[in-house]
Design a protein around this nucleic acid. Structure first.
Lengths: 218, 218
DNA sequence: TCATGTGAAGACATTCACAGCA
DNA sequence: TGCTGTGAATGTCTTCACATGA
């Protein structure tokens, strides 16, 4: 959603590279060692040419005979998209959504780690949920700064989101994944992605109605 | 994410129109009656020209003097994006994520209604959560067909997602919002949007690192 | 033969910039 | 004056199509 890059790598390329990496990891688990662009294309809803272009971007070259070496390709994507060290993430708002994310994150990524959660509900504060310690919202500045966290996931209600975001920015956060249904008012150097679930359903409802049966024979 | 339209309206336009509608509804609540393109642009991270183009698409015309009449504009967007009657939605997978969505949906939309939920856990089946009755997964075909539901939200674990999707398609669903982290194998006429939370965080982590401080003085 | 890497073309999306209007 | 609506220009993304190589 956000655009205006101070950098030059297009968002879409990164999205696809991350998806390829996920697919490649699965293939590796199945003991595959190489893959062709058209196979990856099928598995990722991209076109073969797009897959090849994406790999040009990161400077990985395959062989016309064997295709792309899965191990090496994963390695190249890692080098391109991952930080040198583990990047720390925090989650603010330990409701159902927050817990779903904490749970889903568990052990899924070795380069990203949720290291602290926050909630304003005193009943949740002090508890450990899915292995993550939960602190009171007031301590965001202190703890985010101390831990060196630079990505945040906001899963608080609409009414609290801006306040939380302000605290996070003061603490030095650089990127926010916002599940609250409002546009956050933030300095332009902060990278934000808004993921509004109601808008998502509305969009699908729209296209579900218009989608025309294609393919079949022709 | 899905593309290849059998129709002709670009996905991005719809996304923005839905967002404008949300913003306009808020403005109306504040008793505003009209708005200019540059104001809407600010509130939606679009450019003024983009806002005007989007309204061209739906054939709504503002006045250079007053701007856009909020009531009329909402009405025009409604006519363009909403179905005639209430569109029914189902949710499969009543875990934390599912419950977050059920809860968030409550009374938020008058043109979309979640009318049934499904889960394979016998403890959840038969209960009513956030006002929605929960049925066993095996009854998807029967109930989705009977109710005439045409949009589904999948919030089950990865391992069950494809099976659930197959049942939904057999039941005649037309659009799917998929929160499971796999690509579903579906006929091309089904509109799918994949919302993988881990990929979302990975993307933000990437751009959070590269985002360079801009603006300031220059 | 068949898949890669890529220049060039094409499709799509955004922005510019200005006429027209009150 | 300050906005809208829009043709034209620009910018971005995707696909085409082919030279290359094993």
């Amino acid at each position: 959603m956000k655009n205006k890059n101070g950098n030059t790598v297009p968002e879409k390329n990164i999205e696809r590279l991350l998806l390829y990496r996920r697919i490649l990891a699965n293939l590796r688990r199945e003991k595959k060692t190489a893959v062709f662009s058209h196979q990856l294309a099928l598995m990722s809803d991209a076109s073969p040419a797009q897959v090849r272009r994406d790999f040009m971007l990161i400077g990985y070259f395959g062989s016309p005979v064997r295709g792309y070496d899965i191990d090496q390709l994963i390695q190249s994507i890692n080098e391109f998209v991952d930080a040198q060290e583990v990047q720390k993430v925090t989650l603010v708002g330990v409701g159902h959504l927050g817990r779903a994310i904490l749970n889903y994150f568990q052990g899924r990524s070795d380069k990203l780690a949720i290291t602290a959660a926050f909630d304003r509900n005193p009943e949740k504060v002090g508890r450990v949920l899915h292995g993550i310690h939960c602190y009171p919202t007031e301590r965001i500045q202190e703890i985010v700064k101390a831990e060196g966290i630079d990505v945040a996931i906001i899963t608080v209600p609409e009414s609290e989101a801006q306040d939380v975001a302000d605290r996070l920015v003061q603490a030095g956060i650089r990127g926010i994944l916002n599940y609250a249904p409002i546009k956050l008012n933030l300095p332009p150097e902060i990278f934000v992605d808004n993921r509004d679930m109601l808008l998502a359903v509305e969009k699908i409802a729209f296209f579900a109605r218009r989608r025309i049966r294609k393919e079949s024979v022709s």
